[in-house]
Computed example of a mutant assay.
Amino acid sequence: MTLHPEQLGRSKQELAATLKGLRKRAGLSGARLAMRCNMSQSKISRIENGKTPANPVDVEQILRALDAPPDVLARVAELVRLAHTEWQDLRSLRRRGLQYKQQELAGLEASTVEFRYFLLSMITGLLSTPEYIRASLAHLDGDQSGLIARKSSRQEVLYDTRKRFTFLLSEMALRWPLISPPAMAMQLDRIVSVSRLPNVRIGVIPLRGIMPVAPMDTFTVYDTSLVTIETTSGVLVIRDQRDVAMHVEAFATMEGYALFGGGAREQIERWSDDFRRSV
């Protein structure tokens, strides 16, 4: 399935209208369909009016009760996936104010227990020094001191031992010279320090050997309920459980290529020394 950002805003309403139309064509009342699906009539009504998002299990029950043909099943499956996908384009985020995105992320971090970060080309804000954060925002106009402070304050979540973090960083993410060599050395030193927290695992993927799987995106998995994928032009938010499971599996594959513990720290420290020697 190809995802077109302009479709995502309409998908929930289209899914609701499609399910309602299928029920009517089947000649069933909402009450009768609810009985067949073992749901309440009010839930059927909320789904058909777009007030309650229809999850894949609910949709499957409804379609089975309506004896929908295969072509309808395929179309509705696509709508379900779109309905559980959100596109946040960078231009809109900037217009709204990126500080609101930081509030959204802080809320998501507060409600999540297990985090999986796959970092392909840059270091995430939770691991970043203030100088690295400042450089990552240099393309924005105006004074970004407030945004830098918010991103830095979110790092407190790392010290909540009820939560578990795994960060997988590619060699490119760790060695890309976003800031000066001495500052990059300090940035890598910070990651070594964070790696010693009891609830944090830092994995390093050196560019060596053969890795037949080539990841395409930077992504974060929150528990097993949501994935965010970062692109140049925005962020894709995915809630469809099939897509979430696919990213959990991809993450596990990349873990197999990573160094952890003392091996990861030794590798990061070597790269940190490389930066210091390059001055």
Rank of each mutant, 00 (worst) to 15 (best):
E14D: 06
G30R: 07
N199P: 01
P70S: 06
D223T: 06
E104A: 12
S40F: 03
V76I: 13
Y117P: 00
Y159G: 04
A34T: 12
T232V: 15
P212Q: 11
S136H: 10
R95Y: 13
A138S: 15
P212V: 03
R154S: 00
D160I: 02
M172C: 12
T161R: 08
E171Y: 03
M211L: 11
S136M: 14
V213P: 01
D89P: 11
V221P: 10
L174D: 06
N55M: 06
Q155H: 02
A110R: 12
R276S: 10
Q103T: 13
Q88W: 09
P53V: 10
F118K: 10
G262R: 12
F118T: 12
F219P: 01
D189S: 15
Q102V: 00
L236R: 06
A258T: 02
Y117I: 09
M172G: 05
G261T: 09
R64I: 07
R242V: 08
A34C: 06
A252L: 13
V194H: 00
G21Q: 15
E48Y: 05
A77T: 13
I148Y: 00
W87H: 14
G97D: 08
S92R: 11
V248F: 01
I229P: 00
Q241I: 14
I62A: 07
R25M: 14
F260E: 09
R94F: 01
M122F: 13
Q102R: 03
A74I: 09
A31M: 05
A74W: 09
I229S: 07
P5G: 01
I210G: 03
L98I: 01
D67V: 11
T124K: 05
M186H: 14
A245K: 07
Q41F: 05
E266I: 10
S42Y: 00
Y100G: 10
S42N: 07
S121R: 09
I133V: 15
K163P: 08
M35S: 15
V157L: 07
P53G: 10
M216E: 13
H247M: 12
A65M: 11
Q144H: 11
L28Y: 02
V57T: 14
M39T: 04
N55W: 11
I191E: 07
G50W: 04
T112W: 11
R164C: 02
G97V: 06
G263I: 04
V248Y: 02
A173D: 08
E114G: 05
S272M: 07
